[in-house]
Design a protein around this nucleic acid. Structure first.
Lengths: 203, 203, 203, 203
DNA sequence: CATGAATGAGAATTCATTCAT
DNA sequence: TATGAATGAATTCTCATTCAT
């Protein structure tokens, strides 16, 4: 009865959803959550707004599902495999993280997630399930970098102080830049990362 | 019938407008331009929304006029008088500017202007007259700080490099933080400013 | 400042709301709740749909407020003063109630309330506050008629049996007719009421 | 390629359509025409909504065809064979009709038709072809009962008066109950039928 | 000047209908 | 046949803007 085998259909369906979620992440990140219109997501994904509702039940669900997907999708990205390269100093690894996170090819996504999380964090009356999620997702970045900060402090590379607070400041700066001026990273990326890391580097 | 002379009336009218513009700056800065509703401005100014339209013809005009007013109003504010205190080093003056600009009491306005400008800059299809304006207003910050950067480089306090670019990075970081997380400045302000200025300070 | 005294304005506002609520009762009654579009209410009230939302916050609130208003408005109507005329037999009073409730001039309202209540009663997942309300409003009819049924049974005019159940059947029939075929009452009303009351009259 | 002969295929096709129409009647009757979604019919029939459109070209056609089918299918049903049992008095036959029509097992269909017809009758701007149809279908009930009313009047069992009008009132009451409160028939059915027929019974 | 009533364009969501597979 | 993907018209609700008082 089914014209194609189930696997193919599921595959297709999954791709379609991914296509929409990818668009959603991009548009949400660019415009903020409230200002993102379903029509913008649909246009970016090159589908009708009706189809968006075929796959998702509401704007909120799109947001939620897209974030979830994006985090899962990129959790295991090579980005963080690199981070465990013990040949490189912690500060250098932080620089690499910064470079990867905001300049790598597929980064529209991970960059977007970062910005959306930031946008959500500043929302007042976030529904409980999203609060949880935002914390979980934000935690991902923190957990990836926190050990590097501590390690760097121990080795004297990074300035003293509450590592968590320092990390917080660093992430706030990064996400702020992304939100305000994503094009910032276009040119002289390495130089800019160098300047940013001066904030936390000893000497 | 006229209970007051013309001057008094003009005075009153001017105050009324200022009252609305002050509210507008605050609300625009807090919520972003698109998310600011006329009703929010009216409420903040404690007037009816109808009255807002008595003084201004559109939301855009409110924005435009309020920015214009705020910039003029604060151009000569003591904030920048301090900046010319030649007893203090350029880097110190930059720290003070940063402190003032984002944390001082009356700063609701100048801070607001900064954030709104930032918000406008990231808007894609800005009408031409606003583009002009944004540039003009943004210029204000640049002109205030640029001499200090150059001076600091000459005295060896600030790292070498294209002063304009350096200033650009610094302002991007500041405005990014304000846009993303205004509460950032609430606690430990001086310490945070200290960390931010490490980006550009020679050691 | 206010061009008219507060009382006049309140009066006007109240009339406007009543105008919309009157229309709402009519349209809800005619089309059922789900099928009633805001635009239908607006059209019936001869106002824009926007204005409807100026006075009410949602379709549900319109329904709720309109029912509340209608019940209050008509509770004390002369309709029920007549009912206590002790010169007339209970069965006769029931006939009069039936006549009044569905055929009298202003009845578009009370008739409407009856039908809407009926419509609501058959809704499955009614929000709690409406359940309460429906019961309260429905109770109104029951309380008005129940004593007459009991009295009629005592005097031998009305057939024996559980008075409450009998009343339930009678009201179900009435509301069913109203829902299905309001025009039913147009002609030969007295004769039709006569036939209906035969259901319960002892002979 | 054809695994079955033409006859078998036709048979299958016919069953499929019947399956959908049966579901349609049920769902239309339960929810009213406008509130019935294609998806509800498809679900009830356990087919995809796409298949519904394979057999029918529009929601209206489903309605029309289903009614047509249901009437034909049940015209000769035993329900009405019983009606011609001359051992039983006309009034008793009317009672039986009422019982059958609303409580018999297979009656989901004939009951449904009755309710849908009723629903259609109360629709304002019914397309012409449906008007015709509704009249034709409604006629079916009238033709079945009218002779019994006349007979009952002749034998003195049923009150005098215009038989057609009397029948109209009786049918209005029945259909009203079904539309408003189908659960009415659940309990004490015979007793309730007894009360309803009191409307028309002499003595 | 001042208020808030009134309007209508635009955004989220639902659902009949069409179409590719 | 059969499925469900895809589309777009229609509906609820929001909010900038205009207007009568």
């Amino acid at each position: 009865m089914a014209p194609q085998n189930k696997e193919q259909l599921d595959q297709k369906k999954h791709e379609r959803k991914a296509q929409i979620m990818r668009a959603a992440i991009k548009v949400f990140a660019e415009n903020g959550i409230k200002l993102t219109k379903i029509s913008m997501i649909a246009k970016e994904a090159k589908v009708s707004h009706g189809l968006v509702y075929h796959y998702f039940t509401s704007k909120d669900e799109i947001l939620y599902a897209s974030l979830d997907w994006a985090v899962e999708e990129h959790k295991s990205a090579k980005l963080f495999q690199e981070l465990n390269d013990h040949e490189v100093s912690p500060l250098e690894q932080i620089k690499q993280f910064t470079l990867f996170a905001f300049t790598e090819s597929d980064t529209e996504i991970s960059n977007g997630v970062f910005r959306i999380i930031q946008n959500l964090s500043s929302t007042n009356d976030l529904p409980e399930h999203l609060v949880q999620f935002v914390e979980k997702a934000g935690q991902f970045y923190i957990e990836s970098l926190y050990p590097l900060f501590v390690e760097g402090q121990n080795s004297g590379e990074i300035i003293k102080g509450d590592a968590e607070e320092l990390l917080g400041i660093y992430l706030t700066v990064l996400s702020g830049i992304m939100a305000d001026d994503p094009a910032f990273w276009k040119d002289n990326t390495e130089q800019k990362v160098g300047i940013l890391t001066r904030m936390i580097s000893e000497r």
